[in-house]
Design a protein around this nucleic acid. Structure first.
Lengths: 132, 132
DNA sequence: TACATAATGTTATATTATAACAATAACTAA
DNA sequence: TTAGTTATTGTTATAATATAACATTATGTA
């Protein structure tokens, strides 16, 4: 479970927007959507995003430069993430598989190094798009 | 093994630069370095990069917006990649582990979907930086 | 209260990437 | 070999993503 963080005003506005969204949101689309709430500059958005990523409330989808709310109570504060991304409809789903996270956390490279922090993005078709 | 691709002039210039580099290179740093060879515009660089990624000669490190030559003869044309990234010195190493690639290629999500295409980035310390 | 720390507001600018269009070069089939 | 097709190049402009720097305000804590 997430440690409780008391979000500040801007963080809350931006988190709520991302949380309500069914797909990842990009920074400038967020900016556009929160202008009516008084957030006017990119930096205000990026600062909130940075903080939200840091505390694990959202994740960045690196290949898309977009942000999604974390719905995975088991992910260790934003450090170990896995997603599937549909190449047709761009639907992104966070994967929470105990087996996968165990496998990756225990993976050792050639030097015998382990990594508790990782980001994995799978690409393919979602179920819906497969059936079309 | 890579299918042989006959690189064009620009592609060759840019691939050679990346291939000689010990660390990932960013697009505008590449641009700066190939200006003396007549490549003057960002688009010329990005077009070559796109093609080189497509044919699997290089990979993009998504979290760094940087490009590295592929030294992994077993990676299926740029589609299934794994890297370790040192958070201190930024050294990036492509991981070629039969076990890992088999595990990921066979991984099934909740919908039973498999993904032959993925990108995995591990973050931590490289051996050198661990010993410091 | 006073101090320290975190968050905010603002302007400017850096960095990363693509659109649009014209011109060449390379490939392919009759 | 030549016409048609496709890929590549060159070029200018601009879009999209992200951060620097600095002044101010709010919050937490001893």
């Amino acid at each position: 479970m997430h440690k409780e963080h008391n979000l500040t005003k801007n963080q809350k506005i931006i988190f709520d927007l991302i949380d309500k969204s069914s797909q990842p949101l990009k920074a400038y689309s967020i900016l556009y959507n929160v202008k009516k709430k008084g957030i006017k500059a990119p930096l205000q958005v990026y600062r909130a995003l940075d903080k939200l990523v840091e505390i694990g409330k959202i994740h960045k989808i690196e290949s898309r430069n977009a942000f999604i709310a974390c719905h995975n109570s088991s992910c260790q504060v934003a450090k170990a993430t896995a997603f599937s991304i549909c190449e047709i409809c761009e639907k992104v789903t966070e994967i929470s598989s105990a087996g996968l996270s165990k496998y990756l956390a225990n993976f050792k490279d050639k030097d015998g190094m382990k990594y508790s922090k990782y980001n994995l993005e799978f690409f393919g078709l979602c179920k819906k798009c497969t059936l079309k």
